[in-house]
Structures are given as C-alpha cells and as structure tokens.
Design a protein around this nucleic acid. Structure first.
Lengths: 270, 270
DNA sequence: AGCCTTGATATTGTCCTACAATCTTAAAGG
DNA sequence: CCTTTAAGATTGTAGGACAATATCAAGGCT
C-alpha cells in the first residue's frame, strides 16, 4: 500500500457533524475540542473505525481525497465502488455522500449519483462575496471581544504570523487556516465559525497552490498582520476593513486564476 | 386523520436539495406532465410520493410539523415511529433526518437519535448576527444590480409592501418572506440566497407570532419600504444600512422575547 | 448521413431482515 | 440515598433483493 498523505488538520477541521455543540462527548468527537491540531488519531487510515464512526471515516477519507485533488472535479463517486474501497455497506456510504453534499464538496443529482463538485468562476465569486462579509464580521467581533483570557490566547496563537521566516506554500496554508480559525474563535460566534469553515472548504478545493507565488504569500501574511493588529488594538472597524481587503484580494486572485484556467479553450461558453 | 394545514409556501420554499441548481428537472416534473401511467402505489399514509421523492416527502412533512410547532423543540424523532407514520423503511427516514439536521431544524447525537432543535437565546443572537450581514450584503448587491429586467421584476414583486391595508400576522409573515426573497433574487447571488434561506429557517421556528404586535409589524413594513426605496434608487450603502437596521431590530426583538420566555422559571436548569 | 426508437447495462432509490453497539430506564443491592 | 446491574429501547451497520431511472450502444427510419 502506498503512503497516505496525512490529510492536513485543516481539512478535517470542519466541526460539522450535525450542529451538536453541547453534549458532544460520545465517540471520537472529544478530539475536536481537546486536540485541535495534529495528533494522528488512532485508526486514521482504512482500518476498522469504531462502531458509530463508520460514516465519519468515509467522509474524512473522501473529503481528504477531494481537497487533495486525488479525486478531481466532475469525477463520479459510485456507491458500489465506495462500499468496496471502505469495506462497508451501502448505508454508510450513502450517508457519507449526503454529508459531503451538505458540505458543498460534491453534487448529487437523483438517479445520477454524486460527482465531485466543479466550481465555476461564478460560484467562486459568489462564495467569496459571502466569505468576505463573514470574515469581516468575525474580525469586527474579535476586536470587540471583552474576554481578556480569550484575547490573550489569541495573541499567543497568532504569534507565528509575525515570524519573518520565508514560508513554504504548505506551511503557509496551515498558518493561514490557523489564523482565520483563531480570529473566528475569538469572535465567539460558534455558528459563524461553523459557517465560515463550510464556506472555506469548497474554496480550498479550487485554490490549488500554483497561484500562490511568493509575493502573494508575503502580501497575505502582511494583511494577516494588519488584521491581527487591529483586533488586538480593539479597533473593530479597522479590523473589519482589513479582513475585507484581505478576502477581496484573495477572491480576485481566485476568480482570475479560475478564469484564466477556463479561457484557453475558446470554443466554450459558460 | 385530521385536516392538514397546507404548510405555507415559505416553509417549503427552501431550495435545498444538495446544492444542485442546474439540471434540476428530473423526477416529479415528468410525472406531473405526462400524467401518471396509472398506478397509485401505496396510497395510504399522506399521499403517494413518486419513486425517488420519498425522502423529500418525509423532509417536507417533518419540516412543516416543526415550523408549525406540531413538533416542539426537544421532542424526539424516533426512526421506527417515523417509518410507521410515513409507511417507509428506515433508509429514507434516516436520510430525511440527516437533511433536517443539515438545515438546522433538528439536532442529532450519535446513538441518541434526533430531537427537534432547541435554540438558546445565544443561538438566536449568533444566527442573527450572521443574517444581518447576509441581508445587508443582499441589499447592497440588489441596489447595484445592473440587470434592468430583474430590477423591473423586483419593483413589480414588492408592490404589495406599499399597500396600506392593515396586515394580519399570517399575511405579514408571507409578505415578509416574499420581500426578502425578492431582494435576494435581485442580488443575483445564488449561494447567498440558499444560505440565507437556511439561516432563516431555524429562526422562523423560534419566531412564533405572539411577539408580533401591530406596531412591530408596522415598523417592519416601514423598514421594508426604506430598503426597497434604496434598492430601487440604486443607493447601495443606504440599502445595506436599512437592511442592517431592519435585521438588527428583528434580532433584538427575537432575543428579548426568547430571554423573557426563559427567565420566569428561575428554578430550572437546562 | 443524421435522427429517433429500442434495448441492454449500470446505478441509484427503496425495502426487508438481522444483529451488534450503545443509550436509557428501572430494578436490585450496598 | 447512591451505586451497580440487568432489561428494554433505539440507533448503527450489514447484506441481499428488487424497482425505477439514467446512460449508452445498436438498429431502423426519414
């Protein structure tokens, strides 16, 4: 068997199991709270998932494959094939597919099955329009947070972004995800956090690395610092504006990249 | 079997079947057009859900019951009971429950089953914080829409809100939903529309009518007019501000109502 | 040739039964 | 009264079966 990419934490960092925040102690969910980073959970690969976690196992596996482009947009996900791959029956497979559809990673048409979602430039633009507002709101709320302990934790968490080490794409992606997550946590709106994670997921799918030049990353880091500074200083409007600027730049980049990607064949109509 | 309330259009008006917007023509339509080939299968429980629409049928039924408070928050949804009620097997029932969980109408804990979601005042506040931004965004986008045909349609659709007839609660709720939907349509962001509908759903659940006094309704209608006016005039910032004000007032009302609802019994612990 | 019909095949939607794992509740014991 | 244990209820998953529908290839038609 080949080496399995560990599926970065950000990929699995979607606490989306049906909107249960309280009393979430059963099964593997405790991990979400106690070990938000790293930690290869036991039985991560395709071994036997503990009873009750079969669906989560399949979801994680497929989500990881999709985000890592091992499954390409438009590719079909056949139930019978998945039952064999994961050695489970069709029930859990169908449930996993539905959850992925709810996360926006696949599309599902009746009697036609599920395919990996293909984001049009328009989709990307629309999703970013929403994300801009969500992140701006998060930044504003974070700046206004009166919870001193949480603020201190935030300062500690975001320290890495002030390091001047040259960043690799991979570590930048992690840093980026961690930063946004920290902001969302400080904002203190659990639903916003969940929603934001969900909006980000499909976009990660589209945002492959080849558009992430060194300059882009440097600009992004700089913008992160501006957001962080405003939040720490408690300047809500500046934080929101900085977040907005950050996201809008990212959006422009993503859309441009997608359009450039789709332009070459001139015999196509969107 | 008692008379079944028709489940107002706004309840079912959630186009949320897994994020498929294009190519959504299959199923129910064909049957409606070509006239049934002539077999009322198991026309027993409610009606005959055509093959492939079983899940949707269950989802609609349950959603309707939840929003109409025939199922109260905290009430358990037992799979076996639902199989009997809808005369279906557990498969579709489980799928329906998962969809409702994705819509935020029920909570689902492993091995413990599904219960109708109970929104805390905090939940309501958080959800409204998000909705404020979404509706403000929608208003801004609507004001900026360059599609003249869509603008004309919008003007036509929202005409009713300028009528001075005294409103009943029921008709007001419909008008309110229709207005927001019109704005979202004009905004032209399909994902925003979908997301907004999803956020509204759980809130409808909490927003029972007894807080809707005549003055509140009048104020709301007036705010709608302000939003509409700004949109029609193309004043994006004014539209966004008006939408924000409208939603923030609604949020304050909803939270206050919920807190007042939960305060009285001081000898209770959730 | 191109278009429509027809069939074969693949896949999904649903049903059924069965059993293991787990939660909940009530009884038994300290 | 509290803790432990047993029984019942409910969910999670397996596996097989069949119907309904979509997809696709071959054949007949204008």
């Amino acid at each position: 068997m080949r080496v399995k990419p560990p599926c970065p934490a950000l990929f699995s960092a979607t606490p989306f199991g049906g909107m249960v925040r309280r009393r979430a102690r059963a099964h593997g969910e405790v991990m979400d709270r106690t070990a938000p980073i790293g930690k290869p959970r036991r039985g991560d690969a395709q071994d036997a998932p503990p009873h009750g976690a079969t669906v989560a196992h399949i979801v994680d596996g497929l989500r990881c494959d999709i985000l890592a482009h091992r499954l390409q947009p438009g590719e079909r996900l056949i139930e019978s094939a998945l039952t064999k791959r994961f050695s489970v029956s069709r029930g859990p497979v169908r449930e996993a597919l539905r959850r992925l559809a709810a996360e926006g990673l696949i599309e599902h048409a009746p009697h036609r099955g599920a395919v990996v979602r293909r984001l049009s430039p328009r989709d990307i633009g629309e999703l970013f329009q929403i994300r801009v507002e969500m992140e701006a709101l998060a930044a504003r709320l974070a700046a206004l947070s009166p919870d001193e302990a949480a603020r201190a934790r935030f300062v500690e968490e975001i320290a890495p972004i002030f390091a001047d080490a040259p960043r690799r794409m991979e570590s930048y992606l992690d840093e980026n995800a961690a930063f946004h997550l920290s902001v969302l946590r400080l904002a203190g709106n659990a639903h916003l956090q969940e929603l934001s994670a969900r909006l980000r997921l499909p976009l990660i799918m589209a945002q492959v690395g080849d558009a992430l030049t060194t300059e882009v990353m440097r600009a992004s880091v700089s913008e992160h610092r501006a957001i962080a500074k405003a939040i720490v200083e408690g300047d809500a409007e500046a934080a929101a504006a900085a977040a907005r600027a950050h996201l809008e730049r990212a959006a422009a980049l993503a859309v441009a990249r997608r359009e450039a990607d789709a332009e070459p064949p001139p015999s196509r109509r969107a």
